[in-house]
Computed example of a mutant assay.
Amino acid sequence: MKILRILNNNAVVVHHGSREKIVFGPGIGFQKGKNDPVNQKKIEKIFSMEEETPKFEQLLKTLPVEVIETGEEIISCAEGEMHLPLSDHIHISLIDHLAFALERVKQGVTIENKLLHEIKALYQEEYRIGVWAVQKIKTDLGVDLPEAEAGHIALHLHTAKLQTGSMEKTMQRTSLIQELIQLVENSGGLELAEHSMSYHRLVVHLNFALSRAEDGKGFDDMDPEMLTLIQTKYEKAYAAACELADHVKQEAGLPLPVPEIGYIALHIQRILSNQSLS
C-alpha cells in the first residue's frame, strides 16, 4: 500500500485494491511523500466514500487537525458503544457539523435544537454519546458547547447507522412526533414533562407506530370488545388518538389502522388519568 497524496499528518490517500481510499492514523503522513509505503501499524481506519471522497479530502486540508482528531475519536467511540459500524459519510457530516458548531459558539451565535426533548426519548443511546462528546470537546478543544449540541450529534449518529435512512428522514420523523405530542397536549389541556414516564412511553410508542405504518405492519390484533370499550369508556382519549391518526395521514401519508389508534388511545388515557390524580 503506497501513498498517492498526503492530506495531513494523520491522513493519506492510497491505492487499495481497485480504488483510491483514505487511510487515517496518528502520524501516518508525517514526513512522508508520494509512493512511500504506508506504515501498517499506524492505520486506524480505511474507508472509501466514492463520490464523497473529494469533500472529505477538502475537510482534512482546511479544518484544524485537532477538530478532525476529536471528531474521529467521537465516531470511534460511538461505533464501540453501539456495537455496529457507522456509514462512511459520518466522517464528513459529523466533522463538518462540529467545525461549524465550534465556529458559531466562538462567534457568540446561539445554537438551538427545538427537537431536543424528542431526541432524548427516541435516541437515548445516541444522545448519551452526544453528551459525552460535548464534554470531550470541552476537554480537548476548550469550547463549551450547549446541551442542544448533544442532540445534534445524536441525530448524526442515528442517521449514520446503516440502513436507517437520511438525516432528512430522521428529522422529519422526529419533527412529526413532536407535532403529535403537541396535539396530545392541546387536546388534553396539559403539558407533558419531558422526563416523565408517560412522555417517554408515548414518544416511543408513536415512533414504533410510525415505523409499523411505513412497513405496512400496523397492529391489527386488538380484541374487538376491548376496542369498543376504549372507544366508549375513553371517548376523549380515543378522539385525540383519531386526531393524531388524521395528522399522520395528512402529513406523512401513512394510514394508521383502527387497532393501532386504540393502543395510542390507551397511552393518552394513562396520561389523562395521571393528570387527574395529580
Score class of each variant (00 low, 15 high):
residue 36 D to M: 08
residue 36 D to T: 11
residue 36 D to S: 09
residue 36 D to Q: 10
residue 36 D to E: 14
residue 36 D to Y: 10
residue 36 D to I: 10
residue 36 D to G: 07
residue 36 D to C: 08
residue 37 P to Y: 12
residue 37 P to F: 12
residue 37 P to D: 13
residue 38 V to D: 04
residue 38 V to L: 07
residue 38 V to G: 02
residue 38 V to E: 05
residue 38 V to K: 02
residue 38 V to S: 04
residue 38 V to Q: 06
residue 39 N to S: 13
residue 39 N to L: 10
residue 39 N to W: 03
residue 39 N to R: 09
residue 40 Q to V: 12
residue 40 Q to I: 13
residue 40 Q to A: 15
residue 40 Q to L: 15
residue 41 K to F: 09
residue 41 K to Q: 12
residue 41 K to I: 10
residue 41 K to V: 11
residue 42 K to M: 09
residue 42 K to L: 13
residue 42 K to E: 06
residue 42 K to R: 08
residue 42 K to T: 03
residue 42 K to Y: 01
residue 42 K to H: 03
residue 42 K to Q: 04
residue 43 I to R: 02
residue 43 I to W: 04
residue 43 I to F: 04
residue 43 I to G: 00
residue 43 I to Q: 04
residue 43 I to Y: 03
residue 43 I to T: 03
residue 44 E to F: 01
residue 44 E to V: 05
residue 44 E to I: 05
residue 44 E to R: 08
residue 44 E to L: 11
residue 44 E to N: 03
residue 45 K to W: 01
residue 45 K to T: 02
residue 45 K to L: 06
residue 46 I to K: 02
residue 46 I to V: 11
residue 46 I to G: 00
residue 46 I to C: 00
residue 46 I to T: 05
residue 47 F to E: 11
residue 47 F to S: 11
residue 47 F to G: 07
residue 47 F to A: 05
residue 47 F to Q: 11
residue 47 F to P: 06
residue 47 F to I: 11
residue 48 S to W: 00
residue 48 S to V: 00
residue 48 S to P: 00
residue 48 S to M: 02
residue 48 S to K: 01
residue 48 S to G: 10
residue 48 S to C: 07
residue 49 M to Y: 00
residue 49 M to S: 03
residue 49 M to N: 01
residue 49 M to D: 04
residue 49 M to A: 09
residue 50 E to F: 07
residue 50 E to V: 09
residue 50 E to L: 12
residue 50 E to C: 04
residue 50 E to R: 10
residue 50 E to G: 10
residue 50 E to H: 10
residue 51 E to N: 07
residue 51 E to C: 01
residue 51 E to K: 08
residue 51 E to P: 02
residue 51 E to I: 07
residue 52 E to C: 04
residue 52 E to K: 09
residue 52 E to D: 07
residue 52 E to I: 13
residue 53 T to N: 10
residue 53 T to F: 00
residue 53 T to R: 05
residue 53 T to E: 03
residue 54 P to H: 04
residue 54 P to T: 12
residue 54 P to L: 06
residue 55 K to L: 14
residue 55 K to R: 11
residue 55 K to E: 13
residue 55 K to G: 09
residue 55 K to V: 14
residue 56 F to N: 02
residue 56 F to H: 05
residue 57 E to T: 12
residue 57 E to I: 14
residue 57 E to K: 09
residue 58 Q to T: 15
residue 58 Q to P: 08
residue 58 Q to H: 14
residue 58 Q to D: 15
residue 59 L to H: 01
residue 59 L to A: 01
residue 59 L to P: 01
residue 59 L to C: 09
residue 59 L to G: 02
residue 59 L to K: 01
residue 59 L to F: 01
residue 60 L to R: 03
residue 60 L to N: 06
residue 60 L to T: 15
residue 60 L to K: 02
residue 60 L to G: 07
residue 60 L to I: 15
residue 61 K to E: 14
residue 61 K to T: 15
residue 61 K to R: 14
residue 61 K to W: 08
residue 61 K to I: 14
residue 61 K to A: 14
residue 62 T to Y: 10
residue 62 T to E: 13
residue 63 L to F: 12
residue 63 L to I: 08
residue 63 L to K: 09
residue 63 L to E: 10
residue 63 L to W: 05
residue 63 L to P: 00
residue 64 P to H: 08
residue 64 P to K: 08
residue 64 P to Q: 08
residue 64 P to G: 04
residue 64 P to E: 06
residue 65 V to Y: 08
residue 65 V to I: 14
residue 65 V to G: 03
residue 65 V to W: 09
